[in-house]
Design a protein around this nucleic acid. Structure first.
Lengths: 149, 149
DNA sequence: CTTGACCCTGTAGCGACTACAGGCCCTAGG
DNA sequence: CCTAGGGCCTGTAGTCGCTACAGGGTCAAG
């Protein structure tokens, strides 16, 4: 009766919103457990898998790395986590997001300033190009981590 | 006399702030031109290389992809660019940054709300974990592009 | 009995680097 | 003159989080 309501990987994918390939990838890297298999080798998933996969997905949506998610899952799996631990991880993450937002805002400001100085004409002189070539110190000093992709 | 003020790759790296390996990588993918070589095969760079590399670096700092930078460089190299073209690229980019900032702010709000509901105690019950497991619709409907790394 | 949808494994690709391994070159000190 | 160190060379593999095949097996409907 167990297998009666088991999900195929395709069904799990639809229910969770996670790609089939991604599910298999999660299994390979140990984020998802190896599921039972049907006689013909098909993966069979139960409700627990769906729950866990949704957990992973939401974590990813919130910008946690798979490594951080692994950390959270270890805590959960071991039932040893405390609220304080989880909170700390979350707040660390918030701080990082805050930094990213600040970086991006700085970026936006610089680019808007550049665009504002651009005549927008058809001539091959452009303040933006000049800025890229010539400006010595476009951004703040410590901008080594500014790359946002 | 040319070679007298030529820069080694290490010197170019220091002047530009770009890693040696990255410079070689840029050469391999065609963003930087192949430089002259010394008798023993060392790369020799001139002021134009430094200018161009700085251009690339600033573009990267501003979040342009290498492909976009290639586009800008093509325009510059061909001397066919118009200010309007460049401005358009830049403003497209600003729009994207704006989107990213909005996404991150949404993210931050959600996570702060989660953390606020967390008791911070030592018990193994946690509102954050619960949220990750149970919340059906944490974010807006169309959140497929929310991954920010 | 065939078609098409589904599933399997394994590998390669993306972007933008970074990190070696295993070698050559070049200069300064002993 | 020898050696030690730093710098440079090429080429390959690793990172992260997937995605996209290639080349098969399985299964249900018509």
């Amino acid at each position: 009766m167990k297998a009666a309501n088991a999900l195929s990987i395709g069904a799990l994918s639809k229910h969770s919103g996670v790609n089939i390939e991604t599910i298999r990838y999660y299994e390979k890297i140990g984020v998802m457990p190896t599921p039972d298999r049907s006689a013909s080798g098909y993966r069979l998933y139960g409700p627990d898998h769906l729950k866990r996969l949704s957990f992973v997905r939401r974590g990813r949506q919130l910008g946690f790395s798979l490594d951080e998610i692994r950390g959270l899952l270890r805590l959960v799996d071991g039932d040893t986590y405390t609220c304080a631990q989880v909170r700390e991880l979350t707040l660390d993450h918030v701080a990082e997001i805050r930094r990213k937002i600040a970086d991006l805002k700085r970026l936006k400001r610089v680019m808007e300033e550049m665009a504002a100085q651009c005549s927008g004409g058809r001539a091959p002189e452009c303040a933006i190009i000049d800025a890229l070539f010539d400006v010595r110190q476009l951004l703040a000093k410590d901008n080594t981590r500014l790359r946002t992709r």
